[in-house]
Simulated scan of single mutants.
Amino acid sequence: MTQHDVTVLAETFRLLGDPTRLRILLFCLPGPRSVGEIVENLELSQTLVSHHLRLLRGARLVRGERRSKQVFYEVADSHVSDMLIDMAFHIHEDHADD
């Protein structure tokens, strides 16, 4: 990896370190969600959700699709969803040997 690649990867992990952004990503794992659904289900303000979605889109972690007057967001691709799912399983593993 180049130094630039490492910097981009580090920034991506920094973005994932925010609990609100991580909650949004996990909520979008099953499929496309409207901004309104994200706001309502995660009990966040629309302004806050829009801010976090802008950052997640910029990092190519989510993609949005306009349908009429609404935009629906989903996890960008299988690399992102697989990583989130794998890490969720990782934290739930039995750590009896530790």
Rank of each mutant, 00 (worst) to 15 (best):
L48G: 04
L26G: 01
F72C: 00
A76I: 01
C28R: 02
S45W: 02
D97K: 07
S81W: 01
I91N: 06
A76Y: 03
D97I: 07
N41D: 13
T20F: 11
H4V: 14
D18W: 03
D5A: 13
T12M: 11
A10V: 14
L16W: 10
S45V: 05
R63E: 15
L53R: 06
R66T: 14
E74R: 08
L15V: 15
L42G: 08
A76S: 07
P32A: 14
L42A: 06
Y73G: 02
E43C: 02
Y73A: 03
V39I: 14
T12Y: 02
I91K: 11
L26Q: 14
L29I: 15
L16P: 04
Y73T: 06
M87I: 12
H4D: 12
E37D: 15
A76K: 02
T20V: 15
S78F: 00
R66M: 05
G64H: 07
E43M: 03
G64M: 04
S50A: 12
L84D: 11
Y73L: 03
G31P: 06
L61A: 09
E40H: 10
P19W: 07
L25I: 11
D77T: 01
S34D: 10
F89Y: 09
R66I: 07
H4F: 09
V39H: 05
A59C: 04
E37W: 09
S78C: 00
T20I: 15
L16G: 12
I38Q: 03
V71A: 03
F27L: 10
L56E: 13
L25R: 03
R33D: 04
A10L: 11
E65P: 00
H52K: 11
L16M: 13
S34M: 10
L9M: 14
D77G: 00
L84C: 06
I85F: 06
L56A: 07
M1F: 11
D94Q: 07
D98V: 13
R60S: 12
V75E: 02
I91P: 00
E40C: 04
F27H: 15
F13N: 04
L9S: 14
F72P: 00
S34F: 08
V35D: 05
Q3L: 06
L29R: 12
L22E: 10
L9C: 13
P30R: 05
E43I: 04
G17Y: 01
R23I: 05
T2D: 13
D97R: 07
V75P: 01
V49F: 08
G36R: 15
D77S: 00
D98M: 09
G17F: 00
T20K: 15
V80P: 02
E43D: 12
A59S: 07
S34C: 12
C28H: 02
